[in-house]
Nucleic acid binder design. Structure first.
Length: 276
DNA sequence: CATTGTCCCTGGAAGC
DNA sequence: TGCTTCCAGGGACAAT
């Protein structure tokens, strides 16, 4: 499932391959991803445009084009962007071709993925919260997100309008890193815990990027290879395995309709609101 | 307004 | 073995 580190990896991988290239063709086998345009208009506005640069915002990939348009793609659960794939790709939905013969294939098993072609990117990404790897994301900023909210801390981390890019896997990893139970009310965290969570968020995201993302299910890099971040996960998708810190058994529960992995011993649920 | 629940979708796992 | 049922989950939207 592409979260911030996976989308960042895709961006880094595609950047040297597509920047400067001009769209020559768009083959649309599934119109479902197209959110704001019909196929013909989408194709017409794309062909002849050159990719000037790539950006990531939260879990969104943004292709900045000549002429002022932005191609924005969200891969949701099972979407992938493959560069010059070899052989037949199953679940191919949309194929972009370029003036140098290169091909960018959008595949998506479950068809949750979405894309837009808009002149103003903020119509799509405008409501997103802070980028957790920006310098402006400080422990104090995180405190503001958590403060006076009794909502489980994990649910707050997953709210894209507060912090953009953290998904289910990295939320679990960050909470483990900080030694915080996923159900702790956001407003019950003390200053030291917020600091640990802040550093946990940044560390697990950066580590995810270094490892080219986590291939828990269907995620692949544009070169078709899998990432290795999941091999270094402490708790995410590791129910029943040993906690790397205490050796105890990793447990699974449901928080906000999402499968949640944690170490009950390292992340105790105490009702502790001292100091706040 | 904030929060919770439902839905979308399909391969793979689990159950019978 | 083979069929059926259930599950995963980001985010839009509806309901509370």
């Amino acid at each position: 499932m592409p979260e911030l580190p996976e989308v960042e990896t895709i961006k880094n991988s595609l950047e040297p391959r597509v920047v400067g290239r001009t769209f020559t063709g768009v083959k649309i086998d599934d119109t479902r991803p197209l959110q704001n345009l019909k196929s013909a208009e989408f194709r017409r506005r794309l062909i002849g445009k050159t990719i000037l640069s790539l950006k990531r915002r939260g879990k969104y990939m943004i292709f900045i084009l000549s002429g002022g348009d932005n191609l924005i793609i969200h891969l949701r659960m099972t979407g992938a962007l493959l560069w010059n794939p070899e052989g037949e790709e199953p679940f191919a939905r949309i194929e972009f071709s370029f003036d140098d013969g290169g091909r960018l294939l959008y595949t998506d098993i479950r068809r949750f993925g979405t894309m837009w072609l808009v002149s103003d990117a903020s119509t799509v990404t405008g409501k997103l919260g802070i980028e957790p790897l920006d310098n402006s994301f400080t422990p104090g900023y995180l405190a503001g997100i958590l403060d006076s909210r009794p909502t489980p801390v994990k649910s707050l981390l997953l709210n894209q309008e507060r912090i953009a890019g953290i998904g289910n896997m990295y939320a679990d990893e960050a909470l483990f890193h900080a030694g915080i139970h996923p159900l702790r009310p956001g407003n019950s965290l003390d200053k030291a815990e917020i600091k640990r969570l802040h550093s946990g968020i940044r560390q697990v995201l950066k580590k995810g990027i270094r490892n080219r993302g986590a291939s828990i299910r269907n995620y692949r890099c544009p070169d078709g290879q899998t990432g290795t971040a999941h091999e270094e996960f402490a708790v995410a998708h590791r129910e029943g395995q040993s906690c790397p810190r205490c050796g105890g058994k990793i447990a699974r529960m449901v928080v906000g309709q999402r499968g949640t992995y944690y170490c009950p011993r390292c992340q105790p649920l105490k009702n502790n609101s001292k100091g706040r």
